[in-house]
Amino acid sequence: MMPMKLICIGDSITYGYGVNRSQVWTKLMEIKLNVEVINKGVSGDTTGGMLSRIYYDVILNNPTHAIIMGGTNDLIWNVNIHQIEANLAAMAFQIMQNNIIPVFALSIPICENIVQKKWGFIGRFDNINSDIIKLNQWIRTFSENYNINVINFYPLFYMDDGNIDEKYYIDGLHLNRYGHEKMAEIINLEDY
């Protein structure tokens, strides 16, 4: 049996914007699972950009599994949610057609009050979390229909009172090292 090799394709949350390379969730997952993990996150990328690089960044690297995590930047740029869904579906289908096991990772919540100050110039953040919830729900439903595993990062960053725990964020959008540790903690080999 071929040893597990994971490629993670996504945006700045996958890349680990603002965090030391050794502290990014993908690196922590590699150490925890004792498998090869290749981080193909690109800060600022959209699902359209991810789809355009799926062949070179995922398929040509011949992994056993590919974790797909994206859509938040699309929502910030006001891309139609149906286009985001189509891009994610196309990625999953291309991955499966190449005998690679897809896994979706659900997007994390955004601290709307903090992120507007730092990143307000790039797009809209009002009601971003309700849009992320809608997209995450679509990913769950799509994944159930195609028997694709899902890693649910979204609830990790909420406190018991229903507020987002800001201590895990650098700027309301990106996670600090403790947020990345929290993501790596919930990933298990049995999930794949």
Rank of each mutant, 00 (worst) to 15 (best):
Asn176Ile: 04
Asn145Gly: 13
Cys111Asn: 06
Arg124Ala: 11
Lys134Gln: 09
Ile114Arg: 10
Glu144Phe: 13
Met183His: 04
Leu156Lys: 07
Pro102Phe: 02
Lys167Leu: 12
Ile133Gly: 00
Asn127His: 07
Glu166Gly: 09
Ile151Glu: 00
Asn147Arg: 14
Cys111Thr: 00
Ile132Gly: 03
Gly120Lys: 08
Val115Phe: 04
Leu135Ser: 03
Ile148Glu: 09
Ile139Met: 10
Lys117Phe: 08
His174Gln: 08
Arg177Thr: 14
Lys182Phe: 00
Leu106Tyr: 05
Lys117Leu: 15
Thr141Cys: 12
Glu112Arg: 10
Ile108Glu: 01
Val115Arg: 02
Asn113Ser: 15
Val150His: 01
Ile151Arg: 03
Asp165Ile: 08
Glu144Lys: 14
Lys118Ile: 08
Ile139His: 01
Ile148Gln: 10
Gly162Cys: 10
Thr141His: 12
Tyr178Val: 15
Lys134Ile: 04
Met183Leu: 13
Lys182His: 00
Lys167Phe: 06
Tyr168Asp: 07
Asp160Asn: 15
Pro102Asp: 01
Lys182Ser: 04
Phe157Thr: 09
Tyr168Cys: 10
Ile170Met: 10
Glu181Cys: 13
Asn149Lys: 15
Asn149Tyr: 04
Trp119Met: 10
Ile132Leu: 12
Tyr178Met: 15
Met183Gly: 04
Asn176Gly: 05
Pro102Ile: 01
Ser130Gly: 06
Tyr158Thr: 12
Leu173Lys: 06
Lys182Asp: 05
Ser143Pro: 05
Glu166Trp: 06
Asp165Ala: 12
Asp131Val: 07
Asn127Phe: 09
Val103Leu: 10
Ile132Cys: 06
Phe121Ala: 12
Ser107Asp: 11
Ser107Trp: 04
Glu166Thr: 08
Phe125Lys: 13
Asn152Gln: 13
Glu181Asn: 15
Asn163Arg: 15
Tyr169Val: 08
Arg177Leu: 14
Ala105Asp: 05
Ile148Pro: 04
Leu156Gln: 02
Ile151Ala: 06
Asp131Phe: 02
Gly120Phe: 03
Ile148Lys: 06
Trp119Cys: 08
Ile170Thr: 07
Ile122Asp: 08
Lys182Met: 13
Ile122Pro: 02
Leu173Gln: 03
Cys111Pro: 03
Ile148Tyr: 01
Val150Met: 06
Lys134Thr: 02
Val103Ser: 02
Ile114Asp: 02
Phe157Arg: 10
Phe104Pro: 04
Ile164Asn: 01
Glu144Ile: 14
Ile132Pro: 00
Asn147His: 09
Pro109Ile: 01
Val150Cys: 05
Asn176Thr: 03
Ser130Ala: 12
Leu106Val: 02
Leu106Arg: 09
Gly120Tyr: 03
Lys182Glu: 11
Leu135Asp: 03
Arg140Ile: 13
Trp119Gln: 05
Asp160Gly: 14
Leu173Arg: 05
Asn147Pro: 00
Ile122Lys: 07
Gly162Arg: 11
Gln116Ser: 11
Lys118Trp: 00
Ile114Lys: 07
Asp171Ser: 08
Tyr169Gly: 05
Pro109Asp: 04
Tyr169His: 00
Asp171Arg: 14
Leu175Ala: 07
Ile114Pro: 01
Lys134Asn: 08
Glu112Cys: 06
Val103Pro: 03
Leu156Thr: 05
Phe157Ile: 02
Lys167Tyr: 02
Cys111Lys: 10
Pro102Lys: 01
Ile151Cys: 01
Met183Tyr: 11
Asp131Glu: 12
Asn127Thr: 05
Tyr146Met: 12
His180Lys: 11
Ile164Ser: 04
His174Trp: 08
Phe153Lys: 09
Leu135Phe: 01
Ile164Pro: 03
Asn113Gln: 15
Phe142Trp: 10
Arg140Pro: 00
Asn136Ser: 07
